[in-house]
Design a binder for these strands. Structure first.
Lengths: 272, 272
DNA sequence: AGATGTCCCATTGTCGGACAATCCGTCCAT
DNA sequence: ATGGACGGATTGTCCGACAATGGGACATCT
């Protein structure tokens, strides 16, 4: 005999996806399905949902340590193993993490890398083609550059210049790819808009592997990147949003040309 | 005494975040940290990483059933509990799921809702302000509309019109909000670009709760939405990308005005 | 005082084993 | 063919256990 309570009372699964069809008239006739499927969500899901709610409602702020697993198990009246499975979910969602070399889990806002990597997985598994990603870049990057031009500080420009010069001097392509990523990321930071930074970061992650290929195969790619970066920095320096937008658009278009020259078909699906 | 193997051999943590500083000259002097932190990732993480790799490399395709937990435990030489924790992580990442009323887990590509909800959590926890989200919409939505104008089919237009009319007739605001979301989503589908759809979807999720507020508080919001939707549909009908872009920009700007009229401060952080 | 060693306890990571619920295929009776 | 009974397979949850380790309290050394 176990102490489990087994009350299946919980019913407010708030997973509403807004995909509701126009909603026929329910009262008069019972058209089609009378009952919706009974929901039997396992305990580990309820536990994780409960903790997630506390975190999202800011009852648990970032940095707060979570109670010990045993405590949670007692509070939820559930076995520690069950709590652990719930914690794994939250951990993978990035809502909690364990600082390296620490016992207790702490509440943490999901790091950009975390969510971006989720996005990358999704795009890879959805077999998104390179043009799709490129199109998204064409939409986002020029506007981000324009925003950056109006909001950058001198420190931003200095940092960008530093990366630009490092790229100029980079010999091995792995480093060069990293530096291109850094340039884009820093430019995003100049826009002072977390949402766009997140979106940019995801695109960059998806593109990075093939970018390495491209830079290796296309000799003139580096000089074109150097030129575009320089123009963009100049535009930022003079706070010329239109110029920044224009050159970033050129820059992104160049990427596509680079891919074409490198023999990567535009409808190639991105991969890991 | 347990049978655990405890080999700490694994070292290729490929979590490279590209945040590398310009990389000083390592060979001559030992400047700063000589050793990187020893990595001791728990077994459940390695198990989930192994399965994740198999999925991302498409060795396991979508729809494939995963082996039973016991099988996995035997293959990995770990306890079933450990496997379960790994599975929880993959489940929460959306890489595997259990079809309602089935035993085995199956490989699944993460649904848009899944990743979008992750994005929403991240933005909420990063205390992103409403203007940030709005700015991102101003960047993305008009271009999506322009793309949609060139790629829409007649079926798309019919569906959009249907939603438009449903919104026109919608009485309760919850339904109206859903329909606005549906309109945006369908418009995204017309763009035929999964990446942009994903980004749009995330933004919509973040905005939905406050949108309900706004529609309730601002009487003229509905008529403005109706007008904009109509103009956009017309632009799509005549495949006029510029017109679509222009009206969508107006439409999104209207949202901001609506928020202002509703008394929602622009730097209010989005919440659940 | 500050650095270092020692000891203990709380907590995590992992394991072994157990049992009820339930899905699924098989077999049998109607 | 339909419907019911049966048994194996698999999951959800629990119990209990133990080694490893982080963290604090305390003693010791310089």
């Amino acid at each position: 005999m176990s102490t489990r309570t087994k009350t299946v009372s919980r019913d407010r699964g708030r997973r509403g996806g807004s995909a509701s069809r126009p909603a026929e008239n329910p009262p008069p006739v019972l058209s089609g399905n009378l009952f919706e499927p009974v929901e039997r969500e396992p305990a580990y899901t309820r536990v994780s949902a409960a903790i997630e709610a506390k975190i999202l409602s800011r009852a648990l702020k970032g940095g707060d340590p979570l109670p010990a697993e045993m405590d949670l198990a007692q509070q939820f009246r559930v076995h520690r193993s069950t709590v652990r499975e719930a914690l794994r979910q939250l951990e993978s969602a990035g809502l909690i993490m364990r600082p390296p070399g620490a016992k207790r889990m702490v509440v943490s806002r999901p790091h950009v890398d975390k969510i971006a990597s989720g996005m990358r997985q999704a795009l890879v598994l959805h077999e998104v083609s390179f043009v799709d990603v490129w199109e998204a870049m064409m939409v986002i990057e020029p506007e981000v550059a324009a925003l950056a031009a109006t909001r950058r500080t001198q420190a931003d420009i200095d940092a960008l210049t530093q990366i630009h010069q490092a790229f100029n001097a980079a010999s091995e392509s792995a480093l060069a790819v990293d530096l291109v990523g850094d340039f884009f990321e820093l430019l995003g930071a100049c826009s002072r808009n977390h949402v766009l930074v997140l979106a940019k970061h995801s695109l960059a992650q998806v593109l990075a592997p093939s970018l390495a290929l491209m830079i290796d195969r296309v000799p003139q790619a580096r000089s074109r990147i150097i030129g575009a970066q320089q123009k963009i920095i100049n535009a930022l320096q003079s706070r010329d949003a239109d110029e920044a937008r224009k050159w970033m658009a050129k820059h992104v278009r160049d990427f596509k040309r680079g891919y074409e020259v490198a023999g990567i078909p535009p409808d190639a699906v991105v991969s890991v």
